[in-house]
Design a protein around this nucleic acid. Structure first.
Lengths: 219, 219
DNA sequence: ACTATAATCAAGTCTATATTTGAATTACTA
DNA sequence: TAGTAATTCAAATATAGACTTGATTATAGT
């Protein structure tokens, strides 16, 4: 058992990755970046933190190997280092949902109760679109849609939904998606749609999960 | 955007899972548990911590939803809560290896340099065994072997390898595996085997990864 | 060169948390 | 009731983590 120190050093580095993940604010930054690359300012807005603080947290994420950056003029654009990062986030969510009683409670009370229909599964959506039974709307802001979206999805940011309501087809089911399973945008969208008499459901989660699953994306 | 607090609370819980992962000692406990369930005492030995400290860290892992326990007589047996946990560990390792320069360095200097042959991939091993070209030896301690092992593997704990050396077949390649990619046992084993003139290689990683991949296991 | 903008850095404050040990306690078995 | 296994508690120590403020660097445009 000659070499024993390197293993310890290695585990310390692995812990560094986990430490970077171990903060609600940083998880939110990562979720934002899972929608597409973004500047510090945009990330600060998305997370509700000051620019300086956001920058600081981004350094911690970088030291954990989770994000990288490049310069573009005066801006610094951050992005995830690896496709594995969204999978890690999904794994953490999964463990929390299945084994932390309180998470299960929060989800039930705040999310499940807002939408009594079963969400559309990812594989299910592929079939619905292929057969023309459904149209897909992406209710995230334009910038996030532009950075990548489900193949064939139409971008209707939530704030423009009211003015577009009348132009949507009544002979198709409308499937809305946004950032992920705990993003409220798609919940709001299906609520509005149903009030106007549309058949509408949510996709089970958001764009990052779709992409992790290697399903067809545009742009 | 009615509900905003629950999302924050949710992310705090997710961070709890990551916090549980964010310690070298706890990662080592999890790796030990990935070999199979185990009592506090055994885990204390495996990690080199005091029993009290081990117990304490196990509580943190439990609060993070990563481990569970059951009583068996006077013993408390811990196990991983979910098959997703080894995947999370693998994801963290993967990110660290690919994006933390120092990890890459430690691996190269301490592991790659000990074994100049390419390790056997998991899918490759299946073929080698099927055709009879290779035999598989599990060089972990008996207890870990008993808790689950690769289908058809023979258990030869490292300390018994010298006395078994003469009885191994010379017409097959010998593939050794142990706990994972950074476990030294298999490295030591192939070194001994090659010195005795055997054709021997390591499996690319260990039993937990094999199991995560849904490949055939015994017991 | 000058100015505005974007981001980072350095320093400081505040509060919190992690790690560990040894002793006391609980839970169970024989 | 003695003995074993694990947990809990108290307490000491060490570390550090989050966030703010003000200064600084880098770049682009004029």
């Amino acid at each position: 058992m000659a070499v024993i120190a390197p293993k310890k050093r290695l585990y310390e580095k692995f812990a560094l990755v986990a430490k970077a993940l171990a903060s609600a604010n940083r998880l939110e930054l990562l979720e934002a970046l899972a929608q597409g690359e973004r500047g510090v300012d945009g990330l600060a807005q998305a997370s509700g933190m000051s620019v300086a603080n956001t920058s600081h947290h981004l350094q911690i994420l970088r030291e954990g190997g989770l994000v990288q950056s490049r310069k573009e003029g005066t801006k610094v654009i951050y992005s995830l280092t690896d496709e594995e990062v969204p999978s890690l986030l999904a794994g953490i969510r999964y463990v929390a949902e299945r084994h932390l009683a309180e998470v299960e409670r929060i989800v039930r009370e705040n999310f499940d109760s807002r939408d009594n229909l079963t969400p559309v599964r990812r594989d299910e959506l592929l079939g619905l679109v292929k057969s023309g039974e459904a149209m897909v709307i992406d209710v995230r802001p334009r910038a996030e849609y532009d950075a990548g979206h489900i193949e064939g999805a139409v971008n209707i940011p939530l704030e423009f939904l009211p003015e577009r309501l009348s132009k949507l087809p009544h002979d198709q089911e409308i499937v809305a998606y946004c950032r992920g399973p705990y993003c409220m945008l798609a919940f709001d969208a299906v609520e509005q749609l149903r009030q106007q008499g549309y058949r509408a459901r949510r996709l089970e989660d958001g764009f990052p999960e779709w992409k992790v699953d290697q399903l067809p994306v545009d742009q």
